[in-house]
C-alpha cells in the first residue's frame, strides 16, 4: 500500500510541475463545449411508463400517481405551490408514488388548494393507494377543503414530496 501511495504521489507531483492552471482551464472549457454540442450519455427522465417526461402539467407525471382533481400547475400554481388567491388545505391525503428515474418510492401529500371555484383545467383521475369511502382515511375522493380557512370551494390540487419511503 505504501508503494502505491508513493507511486501516486510521484505522479501527482510530476503532473503539477508540468501542467499549468491555464492549460487545465482550456481543457475543461473544451470538454464543456463538446458536451454541450453532443449528448454524451443517454438521459433518463422520470416519468410514468408512456407518459410525459417531467411535465408538471401532465397527469402522467410520476408524483401525480394518486392525483384525483385539477393539477395546480395548469391553474397558475406549480406542482407544489397553490395558485395566488387560494390556500392549501391543512387536511390532506398522503400516499406513495414511485419515481421511475431512480426506482425509489416517495411519500406524497396531496393538498387541495381552496378559496376559488374549480380550475377546470388538467383534470386527473389517478388513484394509486386510493380506497373506497368505507376506509375514509384512505379515500382520495373527499373534498379536503373542508378544513381550510377559506372554506369549501375547491380549486386544484398540489403534490408535495415529504420524503423517501422506507421498504
Amino acid at each position: 500500500m505504501a508503494r502505491y501511495d508513493d507511486m501516486v504521489e510521484g505522479f501527482t507531483r510530476r503532473l503539477a510541475k508540468t501542467v499549468s492552471r491555464r492549460s487545465v482551464l482550456r481543457a475543461l472549457g473544451g470538454f464543456l463545449v463538446g458536451a454541450a454540442a453532443v449528448p454524451v450519455l443517454p438521459v433518463k427522465r422520470g416519468h410514468a411508463a408512456g407518459g410525459a417526461p417531467d411535465d408538471e402539467t401532465s397527469c402522467d407525471y410520476w408524483r401525480y400517481c394518486a392525483m384525483d382533481g385539477f393539477i395546480c400547475a395548469c391553474c397558475g400554481g406549480t406542482a407544489r405551490a397553490c395558485p395566488p388567491g387560494t390556500e392549501a388545505a391543512p387536511i390532506t391525503w398522503v400516499g406513495t408514488c414511485r419515481n421511475a428515474s431512480d426506482g425509489r418510492d416517495y411519500i406524497v401529500s396531496y393538498n387541495d388548494c381552496c378559496g376559488k371555484s374549480s380550475c377546470g383545467r388538467c383534470l386527473c383521475n389517478r388513484n394509486e393507494g386510493d380506497r373506497p369511502l368505507y376506509l375514509p382515511a384512505n379515500a382520495n375522493d373527499y373534498n379536503w377543503c373542508v378544513g381550510s380557512k377559506s372554506g369549501a370551494p375547491y380549486h386544484c390540487t398540489i403534490s408535495r414530496i415529504m420524503g423517501v419511503a422506507t421498504k
Binding site: I91, V94, G95, M162, V164, T166
Partner: peptide, 27 residues
C-alpha cells in the same frame, strides 16, 4: 441520495399527517 424515512415517521406521514399535520398542530 436522500435517506429513507424511519418506519415510525413514515407511518405518521401515511396514517396521521393527513389530519394532524406535519407539525402535529391539527385543526
Amino acid at each position: 441520495a436522500e435517506p429513507p424515512l424511519s418506519v415510525a415517521r413514515q407511518d405518521y406521514y401515511l396514517h396521521c399527517l393527513g389530519c394532524h399535520g406535519e407539525d402535529g398542530a391539527g385543526l
